[in-house]
Simulated assay, not measured.
Amino acid sequence: MAASLLETIHLAHLPPSMPVHVAVYRDVQNAPFLRQQLLAANAEFEYAFIDASVVLSRTHLLSAVFRAVNDSMNGRLKSRNVHSEIVFSLNPTTNIAESFRKFGITDSTKDLLVVKVSVTPEITHDSVAAHLGQHVEGSPVPFDDETLAKIADVAKIKKAYKLGALNTAPPKQANGTQDDGMRRLELSVLGAIALRGAT
């Protein structure tokens, strides 16, 4: 069941041999177990486990993935591996511990984004789908903007990116596009990710 909802993505400007596998789960029952595997550095659980409530859109997540994989390929990792670097890349500051607190899985995470980069040929769509299907106790949902919009906690995202003053309320007129505010928020978030470490 979970296999069909795992999405395998080939990001532009990255080698075709390094696809990225992304899955989203709702109502996760075993977040403490998954987090424990990460803390124990269990190689079988080398994933980016991200609290989905702090991710606004596909573009938001994939920009962090691209940055992390690019840094990995160029020997610029600041954290343990490409998967921890994805979580770190979501953070607008260079504090690694804070990145995991704000964006990583916690014991109370209910909505989970899982990212796995094919850093070796053995990591395939089928192997990742089978492993996640076995170990993540949650309901798989599609990795799309519609799903992420239902899960995203806008107040939490604005706080994480220090964008409290940004107006994300939908416009009053019916003819205004409903997601104008969300688009502004997404652009601000992407800007914060891109600017980090650029100074």
Rank of each mutant, 00 (worst) to 15 (best):
M18L: 11
L187T: 08
P19W: 00
N74M: 07
S72N: 06
E186R: 07
H60L: 04
E85F: 01
H135W: 08
V128I: 05
V24C: 09
A23R: 00
A3T: 00
K156M: 04
L187N: 14
R184C: 01
G138V: 03
L38V: 15
D126F: 10
A174T: 11
K156P: 15
A52G: 13
V20K: 02
F88Q: 01
K102H: 12
H10E: 03
V115S: 07
L38G: 06
S188N: 09
R35W: 05
S4I: 11
L6W: 00
P170T: 05
G181Q: 04
S188T: 03
Q29N: 13
I193G: 03
I105L: 07
A12T: 07
A41L: 06
E46M: 06
P15C: 12
D27K: 14
I105N: 10
K150W: 04
A12Y: 09
N91I: 01
M73Q: 14
G176W: 12
F100K: 01
I151G: 10
Q29M: 09
F100N: 02
A174M: 13
L166K: 12
L14P: 01
T147S: 03
N175P: 00
G164F: 12
A52V: 06
V65L: 03
G176P: 04
R80G: 06
L11V: 02
A165T: 13
D107M: 10
S84W: 04
R183W: 09
K116I: 01
H131T: 07
D153K: 06
H13Y: 09
I96Y: 07
A68E: 01
